Simulated assay, not measured.
Amino acid sequence: MTETKPNPTARRGRIFPEIQWTPEQHAQWEAERQEFRKRSQVIFNRVKPELMQTHYNWYITIEPDSGEYFVNQDEMEGAFLAHEKYPGAKLYTFRINETGVCGTV
């Protein structure tokens, strides 16, 4: 009789190791994220009333450092246009409606 070799099992779980952040690093990341959103929100609030009349429920992608924004009916197309003009820049996308978000929680 021949001996059967056990098949090696595939490793399950994450391919990449998890990022281990200290509480201070996580707090700093969260603060930077909130500050970036606030800068984008200022631009969104400024143009929202005008855009709600003509582009309701479309998407606006904002590059807050330049103040430029891109309006498109398709969320991904607007982000693509923004990334073409500002490669590597951080962008923020809102939906043009009363809340600036899609759906409800």
Rank of each mutant, 00 (worst) to 15 (best):
M1S: 11
M1L: 03
P8Q: 07
P8M: 03
T9L: 10
G13K: 00
F16M: 06
F16R: 07
E18W: 00
I19T: 05
T22K: 11
P23I: 04
P23D: 08
P23K: 13
Q25N: 07
A27C: 03
Q28C: 05
E30S: 12
R33N: 01
Q34S: 01
R37M: 08
R39K: 13
R39E: 11
R39D: 07
S40I: 01
I43A: 05
I43D: 01
I43V: 12
F44Y: 15
R46H: 06
R46A: 06
V47Y: 00
K48N: 02
K48T: 03
K48C: 01
E50R: 11
Y56R: 12
Y56V: 02
Y59W: 15
Y59A: 07
I60Y: 05
T61I: 14
I62Y: 05
I62R: 08
I62L: 08
E63P: 09
P64S: 07
D65R: 14
G67M: 05
Y69K: 11
V71H: 11
V71S: 11
N72M: 11
Q73P: 09
E75D: 14
E75Y: 14
E77I: 15
E77Q: 14
A79L: 12
A79G: 06
F80G: 13
F80T: 12
L81D: 11
E84R: 12
K85H: 09
Y86Q: 03
P87R: 03
P87Y: 00
P87I: 07
G88H: 02
A89E: 10
K90R: 10
L91M: 09
Y92Q: 13
Y92D: 04
T93M: 06
F94I: 11
F94H: 12
R95G: 01
V101P: 02
C102V: 15
G103S: 14
V105Q: 12
V105M: 07
V105F: 08
